[in-house]
Design a protein around this nucleic acid. Sequence first.
RNA 1: GCCAGGGUAGCUCAGUGGUAGAGCAGGGGACUCAUAAGCCCUUGGUCGGGGGUUCAAAUCCCUCCCUUGGCACCA
Length: 541
Amino acid sequence: MDNRTEIIPASPRPRVSASSFFITTAIDYTNGAPHIGHAYEKVLADVLARYHRLKGQEVFFLTGVDQHGQKVQQSAEKQGIAPKQFVEEVTSKFRALWTKLGVDYSEWAATTDARHKECVQKILIRLNNEGQIYKDKRGGYYSVRQEQFLTDKERNAAGEFGPEWGEVEFREEENYYFKLAEHKDWLLALIAKRSADGNPLVVPDFRVAELRNAVEKLEGDLCISRPKARLAWGIEFPFDPDFVTYVWFDALVNYISFAPGYDPAPGADLTTFRRWWPALHVIGKDILIPAHGVYWPIMLKALGFADESIPPLLVHGWWNIGGAKMSKSLGNCIDPDVLADKYGAETLRYYLMSDIVTGRDADFSEERLVQRYNTDLANNLGNLLNRTLNMASKYRQGVLTLGEGETRALGEAAVQRHGSACLLALDRFSPDAGLEAAGALATWCNGLVEDTAPWKLAKDPAQAEKLDAVLYSLAESLRIIAILISPVLPKAAAGIFAQLNWDKPFKLEDTTWGLLPDGHQLGKPTPLFPRIETKATDGGV
RNA sequence: GCCAGGGUAGCUCAGUGGUAGAGCAGGGGACUCAUAAGCCCUUGGUCGGGGGUUCAAAUCCCUCCCUUGGCACCA
């Protein structure tokens, strides 16, 4: 219904470059196959990237994989293969899935890439030269079995380390540390300033408070190395070959090491880089604190980035399964590859974009996926296209005539109303609300058909111009709906254009009413979204 | 434990002082251009429990229960 198109997220949109759009996703850890959460984030970023391309902006969409680290090293050892081979196998699964789902990225960030390693090492050298990194010896309790230091969090109710850790010993270890704590006040001020300026560091805004609380509790510096004896699978410290860098200065740096034109050398020419930066970082809520909300801004600050250049974070929620958190240990992971094969990639894209409010959690249900496809795509939009072309074919041999102006004005007003709601939603990173607005336009069109009953108009020669105007308004609305949904459903949008016999590129400016010319010949109707028939017993996941 | 947010129709949620709402699902009807789709009408709720303030509370206050997230490197 019309009033639902008014549901627009309240958070202001952070400012990123106007002429170009740089968007990144988290890079996925290559310790296992991709699940539905990985797919959601990449599709979300892809939809936003496609939307900005639709607006005519240059888009740089960066995604990739985080391939280093202890878990990968351990998993590879278990399989008796080299870490390199292990991550290559897992990485290929991710890339194949993104291809299947139509995730159209510009650059692939793999942390084992030579370009990335070089950038990470240059950054470490620079920060070391500038006194932001120091070496220190600290002690702690170490689990030999788990090959990790334990913190108080690992202690049980009795204040002891449980038997699951095996033999626990006190151990001292030298490592490199990054000066984090001295930037605490700067970061607090930045968070406040950016929110006050309407250019929030974090969206949605309820996450800003969470971040502020976390920063206020910040104390101590950040350990950024591991001795090679303990972890060999990583990027070597350029000034100390006994160590590799540990996660932060490896994974987070991908956002600039793979960006166009970045060079960490002091005084380097960053003209190209600045044309794109800052990026919009699309991340999950699990990695906001502390990685992206605390460490990353401070790392960039240390590298000389200005306050306005600290990138905004778009924090999405999680897909739960039957109310429970999805996890490998529960064995309730949803395989997006299987779903895409079963229902089609665009059906999955539609579900992932429509059934979750950006920033919040949602419950994944295969049954609901089918239901939303049938209700929204097959019954509402697909059938609208089909009945429109059938009527045009039956009553007018598929030729459009402008017809009476009053009826067309109604169509134009509806397109204006729902179209602007859709675009506003996409500007606010909410494909869910955008799709709802586009769907509301289709619903309005179906209402127009019922109100005007073209099958009756066709029997009365005196109503010929009205019939023409109805058919024109429907076809023109469908053309515009196709553009509006194209970021989410590029193939279906192309299918609508094809059936409308409208061979034009997708552009946002073409959502203007009235571009289909008088006398336009429409194509032949074919069901665009065939209904998914389910057995009554097939209840989904 | 601390901080923040929730608990409203079968499901997903809107509604912050003035006679309980939407979409989907369920039921009924009229129509026929259409993917048995679309359209119209409609059944569903003592608004988590208890107490309080008020002429009036889903809405404010107190309390209890349940739940989610963050504080703790799994999108």
